[in-house]
Design a protein around this nucleic acid. Structure first.
Lengths: 111, 111
DNA sequence: CGCCTTCCCTAGACATTCTAGGCATAGACA
DNA sequence: TGTCTATGCCTAGAATGTCTAGGGAAGGCG
């Protein structure tokens, strides 16, 4: 399912809030957590991770994965934790506002 | 507030589901409905309306506004009504999936 | 050895929103 | 009368973020 723009950071921050993970792991964590409702393309994921590292929200360390391969583990920084709080509340306020809009109109035909 | 990409169509479709409106009216309807939590920039609104008309979701007719000025009134077509149903359910499924992600992580610090 | 899986990466296409303008007219008010 | 504000429509180009469509290296299994 195509992600709605601007939510990937929020998803990644949440993933890393539970524990440090490498990129591939984040992608599978997201699918597991959402029962495959959401999935990240690698072409979106890695640029997003680099962007977030550049902004100081996450830190990277090379390590060895469970499958015994080299993997870059990302963890949340303090700034990243702050950002998670901001992004979460922004998201919740947005969802609430959209809910008002959906409620304002008569129920759409749901076949 | 900057809109999250991909939601503008949904908002407009909902506005027009309640009644036919001209562009300026849609913008104010959205602010009223969301207690100013959301607002559309004109530079986003008009291109979106043209795009949606091109896709056959809405139809345009020139008329005279309450303020006695010429205004282009948009109304939902049958295809637009279908699209509203699709976009709504897609949005709800997405929000639900993100909720699972937010619940998966420990509560963020909300200062 | 060959293949699948894991794991990382990038360039360019694409879509959508915003910034920053422009233009026209009605009505209020001086 | 002239000017100002609110109404109403529009566009070009920048900025952003995701996806498509690749490429590559290495572990483990048959």
């Amino acid at each position: 399912m195509e992600l709605i723009r601007g939510t990937l950071d929020l998803l990644i921050l949440n993933a890393l809030a539970s524990r440090a993970m490498h990129g591939y792991e984040i992608a599978r964590w997201l699918e597991d957590t959402t029962d495959s409702a959401l999935s990240i393309e690698e072409g979106s994921l890695y640029p997003a991770l680099h962007r977030m590292a550049r902004r100081g929200w996450i830190a990277a360390d090379w390590g060895i994965s469970d499958a015994n391969r080299r993997a870059k583990y990302y963890s949340l920084t303090d700034a990243g934790s702050d950002q998670l709080g901001l992004a979460s509340s922004r998201w919740l306020r947005f969802v609430e506002a959209v809910a008002k809009v959906l409620k304002a109109a008569p129920a759409p035909n749901t076949p």
